[in-house]
Simulated assay, not measured.
Amino acid sequence: MLRCAVLDDYQGVARELADWDRLSDRADVTYLNRYVDTHDELVALLGDCEIVVVMRERTPFPAELIARLPKLRLLVTSGMRNASIDLDAAAAHGVTVCGTASNPEPPVELTWALILGLARGVLTEGGNLRDGGPWQSTLGADLHGRRLGLLGLGKIGARVARVGAAFGMDVTAWSRHLTAERAAEAGATLAASKEELLDTSDFVSVHLVLGERTRGLLGADELRRMRRTAYLVNTSRAAIVDQEALVRALREGWIAGAGSDVFDTEPLPADHPLRTAPNFLGLPHLGYVTRRNYEGFFQGAVEDIEAYLAGSPVRTLG
């Protein structure tokens, strides 16, 4: 009987959202619903596991951790991209890495939750209503007739663009290799440069893949370019926006506000300055956390494990 561990099942739903009984005669599955932040504890928990299922990038698997798990043979991640797994190290240690399907719609929907929450002061007004504060204390920002600037126009960004157009927004987009034709297909106009997009947008939303060319793409200089009445939203990866510069931008009023679903360290430390930054709407990385997505993730994990045990792994990464 093989041992399998499902990591970071924060909501305690992995067992009910897939038919793990299909593996019951071959694998003993355990579910861990808390974040484990040290390699020593992970090794203690996973040392006798041949199979590990991870949720996105919640628990990284760098080379040094993989080397300390000699029994590990299959690593399954939700989605088909996971920058926190060292694929070269996995291959060197004979570990097969597989992924699952993932839906682009949930992060699109959450992006708009953040944009609307910022624009209409939902955090402030909702808090006032619950706590007996003033009745109406903010003046909302309009979407209709305003400019939405999108950094990145892939599967998610293009869907965000179409929603923006439905709100009556002027949608522009920029990325290094984006063409005017591709932008037009999503109902957007190609910005001449990143700088022009930042200079002219009322809302800026980040939808780029994290890489060496996008890490720190928005630093202090870029945030200072934005209008003081503009809002920044990031549901992509935290490292695309310089986090220290973002805190300063909020505290010094360079921008009107920011919303983020992603952070350099997750779970976010209790003393992190973003927790108390003014006009900041933060969520605990919920972009992909919906029932439909989770059903796909965990059912896909079961399928990956079955295929691996049958000697024909599917959806391999690397």
Rank of each mutant, 00 (worst) to 15 (best):
D88R: 13
G318V: 07
P284W: 03
T96L: 06
Q299P: 00
D221E: 15
L23W: 03
R22W: 03
C98D: 02
W112H: 08
L150H: 04
D40S: 13
V160E: 03
V54N: 02
P278K: 04
R292S: 15
G219D: 11
L281S: 02
A119I: 00
G296D: 05
Y35E: 11
L123T: 09
D88E: 15
P104Q: 08
L268K: 06
R275I: 04
R228P: 05
L148P: 00
K71Y: 05
A158G: 10
L208F: 03
L268A: 13
V204Q: 00
L153M: 12
T316Q: 15
D9M: 06
T235D: 01
G145A: 06
D221P: 03
T200V: 14
A256T: 08
I51Y: 01
V163G: 02
D264L: 15
L281F: 12
A245L: 08
S312R: 14
V6C: 03
V122T: 14
R68I: 08
R275M: 09
A166T: 12
V13G: 01
T316I: 10
R227E: 12
T214N: 08
A165R: 15
R225P: 02
F298H: 03
L246K: 01
L151G: 00
S312W: 11
G164T: 04
L2K: 13
R248S: 12
A161K: 00
G311C: 07
N82K: 06
R34E: 12
A18R: 00
C49A: 09
G216H: 11
T265E: 15
P313S: 04
A239H: 11
V97C: 10
R251K: 14
L150S: 00
L153G: 04
R162H: 12
A101F: 06
S193K: 11
E266K: 08
S260R: 05
A186Y: 00
R182I: 06
R182T: 10
A44H: 03
E125P: 02
L116C: 07
L153W: 02
N128P: 04
E50G: 14
R130W: 11
E212C: 09
E306W: 04
E195Q: 15
D202Y: 01
D261S: 11
A14I: 03
G164E: 05
R275A: 11
F280V: 03
R81H: 13
R291D: 13
I51H: 00
T30G: 14
E41C: 04
M55I: 14
C4N: 05
G79N: 09
D88K: 15
A173Q: 00
